[in-house]
């Protein structure tokens, strides 16, 4: 019997996919989150807001899981999500995590390191999203990214 249509919201999916009690990455919920955000007209906008909030969590494991969801969705969710992540509205939230002027002095080191890694990977894989390179260059200028 086919599973009932999935009424789970993006919010409940991301909460499950980033639950600090998870012993490991919950790939089922990560995949479901990616599919759900692609199928809703405003999915990418809502997904980026939810992800930004989770990535800024002081709980390292919750933030690291959120970054894994972000990375997975950037590989699988296509253009609409790319362009939403490629906006300063979202990139600024990542900048706040790594910049000492904002959350950088309190954010876990592993989270900051992974934020910079994923941002760098997008400057290579998504050159058309020019704002990502702008943000990355600015972090370099401020010495947040080591040369």
């Amino acid at each position: 019997m086919a599973a009932p249509p999935d009424e789970e919201s993006l919010e409940s999916r991301i909460n499950k996919a980033t639950n600090p009690l998870n012993r490991e990455i919950d790939w089922d919920n990560v995949k479901a989150f990616c599919e759900l955000l692609s199928n809703e007209p405003e999915g990418p906008q809502l997904a980026t807001r939810l992800l930004a909030h989770k990535i800024q969590s002081p709980q390292e494991w919750e933030a690291m899981q959120a970054l894994t969801v972000l990375e997975t969705c950037m590989k699988n969710c296509g253009k609409r999500f790319h362009s939403e992540v490629g906006k300063f509205r979202f990139l600024n939230e990542l900048i706040k995590v790594v910049s000492p002027k904002y959350l950088g002095s309190r954010a876990p080191e592993a989270v900051k390191k992974k934020v910079l890694e994923v941002m760098y990977s997008w400057t290579v894989s998504l050159p058309e999203e020019t704002k990502i390179s702008d943000a990355y260059q600015m972090l370099k200028k401020q010495g947040i990214v080591k040369q």
Partner: peptide, 15 residues
């Protein structure tokens, strides 16, 4: 067909 709402508004880069 689904309404594709596409909003290009954005903020400035945080310095």
């Amino acid at each position: 067909s689904k309404i594709q709402y596409h909003d290009d508004s954005d903020e400035d880069l945080l310095e």
